[in-house]
Amino acid sequence: MTAVAAIGVDAGSTAFKLVAIDAAGVILSASIEPAHPKLEAQAERLLALVRARFPEAEAAPLVATGYGRKRIPARAAVTEITCHARGSFFHLKRPHLLIDVGGQDTKAIRVGAEGEVLDFAMNDKCAAGTGRFLEVILARLAVPLAEVALHTAGAEPAVTVSNTCTVFAESEVVSLLAEGAPLEGVLRGLHESLASRVAQLAGRFVDDPRIGLSGGVALNPAMRAALTVAVGRPIEVVPDPQLVGALGAALSALLTKAGNPATR
């Protein structure tokens, strides 16, 4: 059995992710949970589970990323930009533009030939272009994420939904449905709305030949379709899209093990 060589934690704004990898970067264990306000306790509990299964994990270096990175006892804290670039490059193995639609941040990262960050852009102080936008409105419509694709698979044309503000969009959607707009059209419009905002951000780097997508929304086929149209070129979903940041953190931990200086 392969041994755990490094651990990565991505303490994001909505989800907490932890992965344990072997020396080749293969994920041996992964956990995804909603982020708990007491991050330290959450990390400790999930780490205990990994260590129970892989005793050698006790000595494995740990790197933390995400908004809560500095609250996790780790060898180093590395930003989610660097970690997402590393995690995504590990899978795609070539320069690309990574679009990560997270819970609070949407990032467009130009990843170089060695997995380094060439440039990046993030949304401003507003979460209307992030995963939270969909999450809030789908919850209001009582549509589980798993069923979104079923609802949007038909030919119902999109109903325009604004994307300036999540709160406004939520009440707009409720009004649209009350006026008789079909749920399928509203859902399609919702995805297009988010996709156009993400494409606006990624548009700064539109010259990049390949585009990868990570974050929870990558699991949503309706979002993938809307984003492909909005960006105007094919989008490749990075394997384990929700774990890309945590994987990048674990890969960073491997680098610290190899004698590279810890980064913060």
Binding site: Y67, T79, E80, I81, E116, V117, M122, R264
Partner: peptide, 14 residues
Amino acid sequence: AAQVESRLAAFMES
């Protein structure tokens, strides 16, 4: 603060 700190840190890491 958290967003500014995160962007600057990522910039410096690059």
